[in-house]
């Protein structure tokens, strides 16, 4: 119990319950199955990206470029398939491969040039995005192959959207990697103490390549979901939202300096953002309030966890004082 209270996920969970109850009280539609399924569907792309961003943060890195990676993967995939034909499988294969390659470039640059990851990925964001614009000359592809539409329309029995299944599949797969493989624990170890990881014999290069490659993979994989959701390929529809994804992951309790964070927290961070956007509209508050509320929640959240950390550090016993007379 004590452990539970010290975790930020616990407070996030409470906040979600309270908000959910409030929204439902004001408008019962909020808790309707249809609304929840719609939210799951429309946030599936965002959710997939947040999983990748979490893994990068866990390893002690950061990636800003993933939106550009997704953008490139999406556009190139759609363009290639329109030109040469293909199906859903080749779309996933192609865009994931593009994502992995671009992600690996990030990983190699960060490892070998020893540039801080935030700087490296800001540079590659500009590089990837600029190149895409030059290649595409900014042309929007309005008609995407029909199988994208089918993907977005596919429902499991009970009306559960297929794209949300993909999101949940990504979460489960990542959970297995993080908790049931040596690699997963290595990612936590690297994020906890880089120098120790090198000394104890962790292969830092491989871990980094995996982490940034995985972020790239999920960006590419997710971009197919994105295409399905928006039914077009617009060269600037994803770039610019990188900080929103990071905000969701941080809200979910991940430590921005690495080593701590959980998939459950990240899922709840995304859920919170989704609920705010949707709930405010449902209770009749203008969507203009959206970012204001998210900003406030974010600020309160990071301040709370920082103060909690300071309090705990101050309380930790430094000296075992002998009580009583000597």
């Amino acid at each position: 119990m004590k452990k539970l209270v010290s975790r930020s996920e616990f407070y996030l969970f409470l906040l979600i319950l309270v908000l959910g109850a409030g929204f439902t009280a004001a408008n019962p539609k909020f808790l309707s199955l249809q609304n929840i399924l719609d939210l799951l569907k429309s946030y599936s792309f965002f959710g997939i990206l947040s999983v990748g961003a979490l893994v990068v943060l866990l390893s002690g890195g950061i990636d800003i470029s993933f939106t550009a990676v997704a953008q490139v993967a999406e556009y190139v995939t759609v363009a290639v398939i329109l030109q040469y034909g293909g199906n859903l499988f080749t779309a996933f294969l192609l865009s994931s491969s593009i994502g992995i390659v671009l992600g690996l470039i990030n990983g190699l640059l960060i490892h070998f040039l020893q540039i801080p990851p935030i700087i490296t990925t800001i540079a590659t964001l500009n590089l990837y995005f600029g190149c895409l614009y030059v290649i595409s000359t900014g042309n929007i592809i309005y008609r995407v192959p029909k199988f994208f539409e089918d993907l977005s329309g596919t429902m499991l029995p009970g009306g559960f959207p297929m794209v949300a299944v993909l999101w949940i599949g990504v979460v489960i797969g990542t959970w297995v990697i993080l908790h049931q493989t040596v690699l997963g624990r290595s990612i936590y170890a690297l994020g906890g103490n880089l120098i120790a990881a090198e000394r104890v014999g962790f292969k830092v290069l491989y871990i980094r390549l995996f982490v940034y490659g995985f972020m790239g993979f999920l960006s590419g994989f997710g971009s197919v979901v994105h295409t399905a959701l928006v039914q077009s390929a617009i060269p600037n529809s994803i770039v610019g939202h990188e900080l929103d994804v990071l905000a969701a992951v941080v809200l979910g309790g991940a430590n921005i300096f690495g080593g701590a964070g959980s998939l459950a927290g990240t899922f709840m961070g995304v859920a919170l953002l989704a609920m705010l956007g949707n709930g405010l509209t449902l209770i009749g508050i203008s969507s203009y309030w959206n970012d204001v509320v998210i900003g406030i929640v974010l600020l309160v959240g990071v301040t709370f966890s920082s103060l909690q950390r300071m309090y705990l550090a101050g309380r930790r016993a430094k000296v075992v004082v002998e009580e009583g007379a000597l």
Binding site: L246, Y288, W289, V292, I294, L298, V302, L307, M310
Partner: peptide
């Protein structure tokens, strides 16, 4: 004073400020 890391504090205020501008 509250020890929040700069990237998080300014990420939050960025969202807030942009939101206020839109509002």
């Amino acid at each position: 004073y509250a020890g929040v890391s700069a990237i998080l504090a300014t990420l939050g205020t960025m969202t807030l400020v942009n939101g206020v501008c839109v509002l």
